[in-house]
Nucleic acid binder design. Structure first.
Lengths: 188, 188
DNA sequence: GTCTATACCCGGATAGAC
DNA sequence: GTCTATCCGGGTATAGAC
């Protein structure tokens, strides 16, 4: 799948990422990208087969960056789920357009390096104790919070952290699924 | 703000919604909409000022439908948060393109009827017991789960319900925010 | 590896006649 | 309230010369 890129192609992808991050998804066109590189849009096709490949390459570096950000803080002694949430949020809000490109559509898995998805997902799975369903639920929460922030769905000017704390606590507090009502387990 | 629509404009919006739901956001153009109505795209501007107004009107009816769906099941005896989750998910998956139009961008609040947002949000606030932070966290979870499903981010072919149950349980189990660790308050 | 030229398609919106 | 004609912009991508 994921064909390796030439050095020149990698450079083009790096500039494309800048363009995306600075001006948004609508600005990411072959023409505008050519402008930034000082060449014509047509010349790009000597380096990348089409726009989908360009986007897939940007997505791939995005996941690599995100995975690296997680790995940089694992095992630093802080509470794992809290740490995950902070790093996840920081990444998304620092790169909103990149984040949306990475999450808005089905992953072009056939154009992505093998194992990249798992690598990026591993820290959360560990943070919630290894249960995949719990990990997915916590991931949905984090993704949802970030999207609400990016789309300005929270009341304007309000601190999002109380909601973040609620979610972090919710996915940390219980050891396993309770049968029905609030019969919280005591840690002992 | 939200100017009232003429009956003809309402009909146009209804057809536009069909077009969106059946063919997706890229298909929602003034030309294609004109085709469905048997008129030219230019004629649409006699009824609606521009495309933004058309989208805002579609969003408004979407929220009205969603609010009605919640209100149809409130107080029917089932567990409130579970009920909310099921109705929320059912709406989003039944109208994926509409759902994304409603959530992908900041709300055009100045073009929407007064109070509509609150009306749609009320059922969840009640379901979590009235705490706004908790409600936002639970909403983020539901929104995130739906988006993961719509963007096919969950492992293909896997049942999403275990993750839904985890989240529902997570936001139901605790009574309030613990100070630091899982020192859940007892309901008394 | 870059260029020019071009094909082909699409979009939102306005003016003015009827 | 509909039409025609039009403006002006944008996009991906290919062919072939240099």
């Amino acid at each position: 799948m994921a064909k390796p890129l030439t050095p020149r192609a990698r450079q083009i992808v790096a500039v494309a990422r800048e363009l995306l991050e600075e001006e948004g998804a609508e600005a990411l066109t072959m023409r505008r990208l050519g402008e930034r590189l000082g060449i014509r849009a047509a010349s790009l096709y000597k380096h990348l087969p089409n726009k989908a490949a360009l986007e897939a390459a940007i997505i791939a570096v995005g996941f690599e960056d995100a995975a690296a950000a997680f790995e940089a803080v694992t095992g630093n002694g802080t509470e794992p789920l809290d740490t995950f949430a902070r790093v996840y949020r920081a990444f998304a809000l620092a790169h909103p357009h990149l984040y949306r490109l990475m999450t808005d559509q089905p992953l072009p898995r056939d154009l992505l390096p093998e194992g990249l998805e798992q690598r990026a997902a591993a820290p959360l799975l560990q943070a919630v104790g290894g249960d995949p369903a719990r990990a997915r639920a916590a991931f949905a929460f984090a993704h949802g919070m970030v999207m609400l922030e990016l789309t300005q769905r929270l009341p304007p000017g309000e601190d999002p952290w109380p909601a973040w704390r609620e979610g972090i606590a919710a996915f940390r507090a219980r050891a396993t699924t309770p049968g029905q009502r609030a019969t919280a387990k005591h840690p002992h």
